[in-house]
Design a protein around this nucleic acid. Structure first.
Length: 308
DNA sequence: TTCCAGGGGTAGA
DNA sequence: TCTACCCATGGA
């Protein structure tokens, strides 16, 4: 069965906040190329397959409007008002629509080399519908090429996630991932030494011992939240720093081989310097330093997409 | 074949 | 806190 065949389709509009740039958010980092997200560049559509709280699957296709998004949802059964409201909520969460960046933009305007950020409305970083999905994906970015990350995430969705039509699969639930063997994860997901970490993490979430989703609304000081995120086996400093950015905390630079290389290229003519030197460079930017850093490292990308 | 990717855990000092 | 060593996988 192909998408669209024998399925219910509903359509609605989501009003976007001021200074919201849809495609900048979609392309804010690598997440948009990992399933169940999907980008259709040619037709300028961004899709995601959501699994709702009651287990129902909703394949959402988003099209950018001037001050709104038009959303088309395909589902096996007609969406109830409650389900439609959940779909809207999740889309807004993924695109960070509720996040107030006014303070960040005010700060950015103080620096001539960062004024492009508020000008084009950059700064919202795409995230998954659940913290669980963000953590699993982040674990699969560690110590491997991006190509291998894509392989692992594709395998996770197609082999453990619930299928929707012929060519879409949801991201696996904690229960589903906790329910497969380490041998399966090594052999079929190709997660290697990460396999026991992934299963242990999924078990903790599925059993309720780890209340992940509360991280998004946590009032803990960032240092404390960082410690909690770091307590997950398989999540080190790089992964935790990046996850914190997806939780709306920007105090960490989350250094990895890619951003280090970019920093050397942009600031040191390709010469390598220590992590401490990089951290010192951004120390004065306080709680926003992780966001300034990431946007500066990816500015060339925005320039290609959105000349300014 | 070796090296390195959007590193992290652990033991030992 | 720091260092050394080990850990799978795929692509160059």
């Amino acid at each position: 069965m192909k998408l669209g065949d024998h399925m219910n389709t509903s359509r609605f509009i989501i009003q976007t906040p001021a200074k919201f740039n849809f495609w900048l958010t979609v392309y804010s980092h690598g997440w948009c190329s990992l399933p169940p997200f999907r980008v259709d560049k040619e037709n300028k559509r961004f899709s995601q397959l959501l699994q709702l709280g009651d287990g129902a699957l909703a394949y959402c296709t988003l099209v950018d409007g001037s001050s709104s998004l038009s959303v088309e949802v395909q589902s096996a059964k007609r969406l109830t008002p409650k389900q439609q409201s959940e779909v809207k909520f999740k889309i807004k969460q993924c695109l960070r629509m509720e996040e107030d960046l006014d303070e960040f933009y005010t700060e950015a305007k103080r620096y001539s080399h960062y004024r492009w950020i508020p000008k084009i409305g950059a700064g919202r970083l795409l995230r998954a519908p659940t913290v669980f999905e963000d953590v699993v994906k982040m674990m699969c970015t560690t110590n491997c090429s991006w190509a291998l990350t894509e392989i692992m995430i594709k395998n996770l969705t197609t082999l453990i996630g619930e299928k929707f039509g012929d060519d879409a699969s949801a991201f696996p639930t904690p229960e589903a991932l906790a329910g497969v063997s380490e041998k399966f994860v090594r052999k079929n997901i190709r997660a290697g030494y990460r396999s026991p970490y992934l299963i242990e993490f999924a078990e903790r979430v599925a059993s309720g011992k780890l209340d992940l989703e509360s991280w998004r609304t946590s009032t803990l000081p960032t240092v404390e939240l960082f410690k909690e995120v770091r307590s997950v086996k398989g999540i080190g400093e790089y992964a935790a720093g990046n996850l914190l950015r997806l939780l709306g905390r920007y105090d960490y630079l989350a250094l990895d081989s890619w951003v280090r290389g970019k920093y050397f290229e942009l600031h040191k003519n390709g010469r390598r310097v220590s992590d401490r030197t990089i951290e010192k460079h951004y120390a004065d930017f306080g709680k926003w330093r992780g966001l300034f850093f990431w946007l500066e490292m990816t500015k060339y990308w925005y320039e290609q997409q959105f000349p300014f």
